[in-house]
Design a binder for these strands. Sequence first.
DNA 1: GTCGCCGTTCAGCTTCCGTTCAGGATCATT
DNA 2: AATGATCCTGAACGGAAGCTGAACGGCGAC
Lengths: 218, 218
Amino acid sequence: MRALVVEDDPVIADGVAQALAKAGIVVEHASDGEEAEHLGATEPYDVAVLDLGLPGRDGIAVLETWRKQGATFPVLILTARDRWADKLAGFRAGADDYVIKPFRLEEVVLRVQALVRRAAGHAHAVITAGPLAYDTQLGTVTLEGMPLKLTAMEHRVLAYLIHRAGRVVSRTELAEHVYDGDTDRDFNALEVIIGRLRRKIGADAIETERGRGYRLKR
Amino acid sequence: MRALVVEDDPVIADGVAQALAKAGIVVEHASDGEEAEHLGATEPYDVAVLDLGLPGRDGIAVLETWRKQGATFPVLILTARDRWADKLAGFRAGADDYVIKPFRLEEVVLRVQALVRRAAGHAHAVITAGPLAYDTQLGTVTLEGMPLKLTAMEHRVLAYLIHRAGRVVSRTELAEHVYDGDTDRDFNALEVIIGRLRRKIGADAIETERGRGYRLKR
DNA sequence: GTCGCCGTTCAGCTTCCGTTCAGGATCATT
DNA sequence: AATGATCCTGAACGGAAGCTGAACGGCGAC
């Protein structure tokens, strides 16, 4: 884990940094808005701790810049100001949590960990097989980055093959996983699906192991 | 979006429920720990608001049970107790945020929305999908900058789709998140809503994945 | 009360795709 | 090479999935 701490007061900055480090987080530090903007927009952090009371550039403006540049890491805001308007502005700018000074270091660590934990919950789970990539979250399959247009049945078959890429999958096994329950299994239906898939993803992507089943090239 | 509010004080429960409802969130309510445990473990909520001061079963225990059962929705904890130990225990048990009583209803709504948004993987308070932009705090949707006039139901459906933009959303999933647990679900009602949405935001914005669901273009 | 809005229901229709069929191609075995 | 088994494929069918216009009915506003 990698965190950016934006804080001009060296005492607070040091305290937060050490507390986070003790929790196993790699900490980098920016002491003014410009440096913060640059680092946050270019480096891949997992979380940022941002003080609003910066000299010069406003913390909210820094956050807005980050978000405009496409940074998605969660941001915990530190502030001495307890005013409603600040909270609102912070949330609107894309902050994820708030801690009011003075605070306990443990609280900051806990909240940072909570943010990281939740943000990690949607790391994209992508399974690849050769030029194919199956995004389990989006429910889409791409071929060399290009999204494939698949029917429901084709999708089910290909998804299963990708999960078992490199292994021989018998027709029986395929049918069991692709059809629910007690459908009459005529393998010819599957053969047709395989054929249509081959036309979409390349004829040699799915190999036939005669008498044993199919194998998707890895 | 669908939220579970766990709160034994009917006044607070009602206030929170109404505030969330006004923000377009479907709210269900549990007034004791047992009911809360059961609902949270079986129904697919997008967020839960949990009071720690429950009669009988402890709120922390409820949360622990949820997490043990694999519930992943974010949890906002309400508590009158401002003691450090409670916060710690709450975060340990898998809470995502904290609000101390007495609180402003707006703050709860704001934090709930931030949690939902973050849980869906969005950093900024304004979520965009193609020409659409959804302001999670104002609750407004714009199409190429022009504000859209949507009915309550259209709003709920579109908001959910925007949170899941690019993903295939099954009719079942959609129904589960825009209706409360008691309503009979006839997909045809959803089809009509989708049709009306398409007329407002463009026919090709929402793609039909036959046999799998809908997908809002990103 | 009465009016208007909106969520739902219904019926009819269109589109799509999973399956079937028949014939052909390919392979293993002798 | 012959034969039988296995697998492929183009075409077509039929039913399911989804769309839509219209109308109903409930509910809140005035």
